[in-house]
Design a protein around this nucleic acid. Structure first.
Lengths: 232, 232
DNA sequence: CCGACCGGTTGACATATATCAATTGATTCG
DNA sequence: CGAATCAATTGATATATGTCAACCGGTCGG
């Protein structure tokens, strides 16, 4: 593993505070691999042998049932995924596929569990990370149960805008079809939802979004930190 | 706190393996209180000062936005709730109210965090519990995004049946209006959904459910451990 | 350059779900 | 008991969302 990557991973909240020795031994067992786009990295139901870290590129977490499929989340550098399965030593609940050419680090789950016992700082970091993931899903659940698809889109745009720096115009970082799936609707409906937000000053050209009337959109979207603020 | 309760709480996965001293000091700071039905114990957005444990009775976790409200989960003895907020030292994401007369233990969040650092077994238990909660919400999310309301009800009935011992007839443990909210539908629709399951051999009398054709219902519901199995 | 392909869009339509209003049936309480 | 609630149900209707088919416009490879 190149030194720059090693240091990037080290800087992750999950690893930043742990003892050098422990980090080194965790990394000794790790693989880092390049994958092309559209490769299925893990499949739901399989045993969770590795904790995954997206070093570059991006990964879609999705799930299927009875011939249907839905995107649950997108993982971007640098963060981990399937921490829950690793900790519980349980099967993956979601599948993962690369969205683009991606570099992924794989750390054997048993090493993670072993070092958890040996390193208090690492243990605390894992708990914090897990609690973060847990709370994120609850927020997503609230978004889904309490809002219509139009409201979900409006709030997504406000979040994305903020994430992109807060300017009136910004880029979607998803393909629209995947955005539709993440928001729990069909691509056709997403298209109509964008139209439905025009009266609130939203205009769309390809992947470029422009929010022409911030106050109006916010009045409609009613963003709420207990649903939309990712950081708490 | 009566000795029997003390021992009950001690037996919880979360506390079973920790050192006696640590458990004792955790309990020393704890309150146990009786609440009547329909009391709001916590309100979303407030700081998470206490980890809560339902000793007896039952508690509804719910959430509101823009005048709408939805049930997220029901907590029954003996288990904890809002562990995520306690760990993150972050505001509650859900409100909680007693569904019936209930006995609740309250452990100061800062004590939980302090003992986490001091007791490796407790730390490991917290991580396991958190991972469990996390995975449960993901399952709920999949249930919601991948299934129609009829399918959600069918699978709920199968889960409930199993939980009640597996016999053809069993009792709902919710009021129907709350079940509707948990399943993400209106009470009216739940009523129609029960009708919609009649062709698959489901009959309903008040809160009593009878599954007359197990195979038929399962063929329709297509239960899947990665969504419906609570234990993994 | 052309044609195949693919994502996105649009319109027509079907289905699922919510809403509103009214009724029923059980339970509580004076 | 009888009035008042309240959950549950039902029917009529409205709205939201999904499905299907057609079309558009870019991109890519021969």
């Amino acid at each position: 593993m190149p030194d720059s990557e090693y240091r990037e991973i080290r800087k992750l909240d999950l690893f930043a505070q742990m003892a050098d020795d422990n980090f080194t031994s965790l990394m000794r067992g790790a693989y880092v691999q390049n994958f092309p786009a559209q490769i299925e990295l893990i499949t739901e139901g399989e045993p969770s042998d590795f904790l995954h870290i997206v070093v570059s590129g991006s990964v879609d977490l999705f799930s299927s049932w009875n011939g249907r499929e839905t995107s649950m989340a997108t993982v971007r550098p640098i963060s981990t995924f399937i921490l829950g399965a690793t900790i519980k030593e349980a099967p993956y609940l979601m599948s993962a596929r690369t969205l683009e050419k991606s570099r992924i680090a794989l750390i054997p789950s048993q090493d993670v569990r072993a070092i958890f016992d040996a390193d208090g700082n690492f243990a605390r970091a894992i708990v914090t990370e897990l609690a973060q993931c847990y709370r994120s899903v609850i927020k997503a659940q609230k978004d889904l149960k309490l809002r219509t698809s139009l409201e979900r889109l409006a709030n997504y745009l406000l979040r994305q805008q903020r994430h992109a720096g807060g300017g009136a115009a910004f880029e979607l970082d998803f393909e629209k079809r995947r955005l539709a799936s993440v928001l729990g609707m069909t691509p056709e409906n997403l298209s109509r939802a964008f139209k439905g937000l025009q009266p609130y000053g939203v205009s769309v050209t390809g992947t470029r979004i422009s929010i022409d009337n911030q106050a109006d959109l916010e009045r409609f979207a009613k963003p709420n930190p207990l649903i939309d603020d990712f950081s708490t």
